[in-house]
């Protein structure tokens, strides 16, 4: 009982607006707003129904039964049966009414959501891999498309249309603060529309069990003013900056000559692998390994030295590096802004 009360309390608290960076209750996009309204309607109707049931149950338990101690049904038995029957019919009608309200509300919300995205959206393509997100910003002009990974930058107030595909198993794209989820299914192409309305940093997470590291398949989403977004986009279109210090230059050499470049691409260098996250602007991202680590020098060391320790089973192998190679590589990676 205490748990229930705590539940009710905290729910009220939550609906009051306290929601985190990965919350279905966040109203940070058009879809979230509609969701919030619909959820409130459902909550109201179902709570009301629930209270009626519990009241009837309590009445059934605590009802004074007076005389009837003898074990035989008493005289008024018949009439009560009749009034219960009426009650049953009324109840069924009431449920039907409640359900109609919910069905209609749900349908309306669904239509509203379908219209929530506007014309001329920003187009993005996402390909899910075990266990990271490959992101491609589309443009009519092919020279203005670029790849990144495990992050999305979105201009606030601009509709977004994302095309979803999978490279291996079924994943599910889900940034709860912005909208509901949509599966990525190999062999099929699916779509999801977003319409962020509030600036902020949000977290998305793969929501369909996709194997060993399903838990560590997050997506970092930044919703920012249109100008900031433009800047970011322009920045992303540039090739990787040239390494300056000898250490950084050594790092680039290692990245190109050791296995790194076979899997990763760094635009402007000889690293051109396509099976792993693009690293061109790695250091401008906020996470490493699809949310496994926050971006920092220490964590770059940790990841490159042994990617298997924090995210066991991920598709980047442990590559034995001499300490100086490691220093050089990390120093180079840090320049990829």
């Amino acid at each position: 009982m205490i748990a229930r009360r705590a539940f009710a309390l905290s729910l009220a608290f939550l609906l009051g607006g306290c929601s985190g960076i990965q919350s279905a209750l966040g109203r940070d996009g058009r879809h979230g707003e509609i969701f919030g309204g619909l959820f409130a309607i459902f909550l109201a109707v179902t709570l009301f129904v629930y209270l009626i049931v519990i009241a009837f149950l309590l009445a059934g338990i605590f009802r004074r039964r007076g005389k009837r101690q003898d074990g035989l049904p008493d005289e008024e038995g018949e009439s009560r049966e009749a009034s219960l029957r009426k009650g049953l019919i009324g109840w069924a009608a009431f449920i039907a009414l409640g359900l109609s309200v919910l069905t209609v509300a749900s349908f309306v919300a669904d239509r509203l959501m379908a219209q929530a995205s506007g014309p001329d959206p920003l187009r993005i393509q996402i390909v899910a891999h075990q266990w990271w997100w490959e992101v491609r910003y589309e443009d009519a002009d092919p020279s203005r498309t670029f790849r990144t990974a495990n992050e999305l930058h979105l201009p606030v107030g601009v509709p977004v249309q994302i095309t979803l595909m999978s490279n291996d198993v079924i994943h599910s794209f889900w940034v709860p603060n912005l909208a509901g989820k949509q599966d990525l299914i190999p062999g099929r192409t699916t779509q999801i529309a977003l319409h962020p309305t509030r600036e902020g940093v949000y977290r998305g997470q793969c929501a369909e069990y996709c194997g060993l590291q399903h838990a560590r398949m997050a997506l970092d989403v930044t919703v920012e003013p249109v100008a900031a977004f433009r800047t970011w986009r322009t920045q992303q279109l540039l090739p990787a900056p040239l390494p300056r210090t000898p250490l950084q230059q050594a790092g680039l050499r290692y990245v190109e000559t050791r296995e790194c470049g076979a899997c990763h691409s760094i635009v402007g260098t000889r690293a051109s692998g396509q099976v792993a996250p693009d690293l061109t602007h790695l250091a401008s991202r906020r996470t490493i390994g699809a949310g496994t680590y926050p971006m920092s020098r220490g964590h770059l060391y940790a990841w490159v030295a042994d990617p298997q320790s924090a995210k066991p089973g991920n598709r980047m192998p442990h590559i034995p590096l001499e300490p100086d190679q490691l220093h050089a590589i990390v120093a180079y990676l840090e320049t990829l802004r």
Binding site: I34, F35, F42, T46, Y50, V53, L57, A109, K181, A207
Partner: peptide
């Protein structure tokens, strides 16, 4: 009764597509 009805009512929430798209697999 106390428990099942609550579970049934959350089931009704899940049956709504816009709600389920958020709540699915959580």
């Amino acid at each position: 009764v106390i428990t099942f009805v609550l579970g049934g009512l959350t089931g009704v929430m899940l049956a709504s597509v816009p709600l389920d798209l958020q709540l699915h697999d959580t």
